[in-house]
Each structure stands twice: as C-alpha cells, then as structure tokens.
Computed example of a mutant assay.
Amino acid sequence: MSTVGVIGTGNIGGTLGRAFARGGYQVVFGSRSPEGSAAAGDTGAKVGTVVEAVAAGEVVVLALPGTEVEGFLLEHGAALDGKVVVDATNSFPGPVLNAAALFAAHAPGARYARAFSSQAWETFATPPADGGPSDLPFSSAAEDRETVAALIESVPGLRAYYLGADAQDQVDAAIALLFPAFSTRGRSVSLRIVTNG
C-alpha cells in the first residue's frame, strides 16, 4: 500500500483520509494547524504540516477549496514532481472546475489525476442507503489507473469508473449532472454508469 498525503482536513479531506487509513493506507494529513487537529480520528493516521504530508505521500490527494489551489501549487509545486496527485477540488463557480491548467503551469512534473470531485463528502462518509456501490468517475494517465482505482475502492461503497487519460472535463460533466440531484435526493447519492456495448 502507498503512503497517501491528504492536503486538507475539512469535510472532504478528513473523510477521505480516514477512509484511506481504515482501508490499509498509511495516511499523513497536511494541515496549516496540525497541533490539536482531530482529522485522523481513531484511524492511526498522522497529522502534520502541508510540507510533511507532501513529502511523505507517494500519492497526494488535494482536498482544498478551489480558491486555494494556485497558492498551494506556487508554494509546493516542485515537491510534487513524480508523485500521483489526485485533484479532488472544484473551482466553483468558475467555468472550469478542475485544476489541470494550474498543474500544467505550476507543477508540470506531477502526475495529474482527477477524482473524488463529482460527489458530496457525505457519500464518502456513509455508503448510499440503496446498497451501492456508487460509481466514481476518474481520470488519470494509463500507468496510474490502478493506483487511483485502488484508492477510490478503499472507500466503502465506491467503485472506480475510469474515463481515460486527460478526461478531467468528462469528470466535470458528471459533476454538472449530479449536483442538482443533491437538492432533491439528499447529498449521499449513488451513481450508476451504464454503457452500451
């Protein structure tokens, strides 16, 4: 199992990091205020600085507000070289939700992937009541597909659904379809992707 650095300890980062730890990963949370943080819960995960989490993570999951991504990359972009970095952010209300262009500009050595952005954090905390699994669309380079899929499927109730390399816009399209459902069905929503052929 890889060591996962989770940047962000809020609803998304905290929920995902604890799920990864329970799924067998070594997890280091990156927080601006690590002292006294309860992000790890009872999982055995560690809470450190952002620098420590980036350094420790073979895989880094970015779970910050969309407005903070560029600043993070300006400060830490070089340290992401060679690492699989999973973009779980959404730049609302911008016309482009993913941070692929920011990574290309400020962290070109990172191995960019897009996942965990199309569903609300409640789906990651509690599997949907209909029994799931819920398909989670993701994009990554082909060589990182298994790594990202295993990370997704360590979260109870999720099934990885690969859209291909450089398919972050398709992940964003899934977000546009799903988010209106939260207002009518609640925020823990199951997604089933059905294909023909």
Results as ranks from 00 to 15, higher is better:
residue 70 E to K: 14
residue 41 G to L: 04
residue 85 V to R: 12
residue 10 G to R: 13
residue 191 L to F: 05
residue 59 V to L: 14
residue 163 L to H: 12
residue 80 L to Q: 12
residue 118 S to E: 04
residue 7 I to T: 10
residue 47 V to C: 04
residue 164 G to T: 08
residue 158 L to I: 03
residue 84 V to M: 08
residue 156 P to L: 10
residue 110 A to E: 04
residue 193 I to W: 10
residue 42 D to I: 01
residue 83 K to S: 13
residue 100 A to L: 10
residue 12 I to L: 15
residue 119 Q to W: 00
residue 142 A to F: 05
residue 157 G to S: 10
residue 110 A to N: 07
residue 112 Y to A: 09
residue 83 K to H: 13
residue 149 A to K: 13
residue 68 E to T: 11
residue 108 P to A: 11
residue 67 T to Y: 10
residue 104 A to I: 06
residue 44 G to L: 02
residue 182 F to W: 15
residue 175 I to M: 10
residue 126 T to W: 04
residue 114 R to M: 05
residue 72 F to P: 06
residue 112 Y to R: 10
residue 153 E to I: 08
residue 8 G to L: 11
residue 45 A to L: 03
residue 21 A to H: 10
residue 156 P to D: 08
residue 118 S to R: 00
residue 131 G to Q: 07
residue 16 L to Q: 08
residue 116 F to W: 06
residue 153 E to V: 07
residue 28 V to D: 09
residue 39 A to I: 01
residue 90 N to H: 08
residue 143 E to I: 06
residue 82 G to H: 13
residue 54 V to C: 11
residue 38 A to V: 02
residue 37 S to F: 02
residue 191 L to P: 02
residue 10 G to Y: 12
residue 191 L to S: 09
residue 176 A to I: 01
residue 5 G to L: 10
residue 32 R to W: 02
residue 161 Y to V: 03
residue 91 S to T: 14
residue 170 Q to E: 15
residue 195 T to H: 12
residue 130 D to V: 03
residue 165 A to M: 00
residue 73 L to F: 08
residue 141 A to L: 13
residue 36 G to T: 02
residue 188 S to D: 11
residue 105 A to E: 15
residue 36 G to A: 04
residue 25 Y to S: 13
residue 183 S to K: 00
residue 72 F to Y: 10
residue 74 L to P: 00
residue 171 V to W: 12
residue 9 T to A: 11
residue 167 A to P: 06
residue 82 G to W: 12
residue 184 T to C: 01
residue 137 P to M: 04
residue 138 F to T: 03
residue 161 Y to Q: 04
residue 181 A to T: 01
residue 43 T to P: 06
residue 136 L to C: 05
residue 84 V to I: 15
residue 197 G to C: 00
residue 83 K to M: 13
residue 181 A to S: 04
residue 138 F to G: 05
residue 166 D to A: 15
residue 184 T to P: 00
residue 106 H to V: 05
residue 43 T to I: 03
residue 165 A to D: 14
residue 51 V to P: 00
residue 152 I to F: 09
residue 109 G to W: 06
residue 4 V to S: 08
residue 112 Y to L: 07
residue 68 E to L: 11
residue 4 V to H: 09
residue 99 A to I: 02
residue 44 G to Q: 02
residue 74 L to Y: 00
residue 64 L to Y: 09
residue 98 N to T: 15
residue 126 T to Y: 07
residue 24 G to M: 11
residue 21 A to G: 10
residue 143 E to K: 13
residue 2 S to I: 02
residue 118 S to F: 00
residue 145 R to W: 05
residue 169 D to P: 01
residue 35 E to Q: 14
residue 116 F to I: 04
residue 42 D to T: 05
residue 117 S to L: 00
residue 184 T to W: 01
residue 116 F to G: 06
residue 108 P to N: 11
residue 128 P to W: 03
residue 110 A to D: 05
residue 160 A to G: 11
residue 194 V to K: 08
residue 96 V to R: 15
residue 169 D to W: 12
residue 122 E to Q: 15
residue 34 P to S: 07
residue 94 G to Q: 14
residue 53 A to E: 04
residue 23 G to F: 10
residue 47 V to I: 01
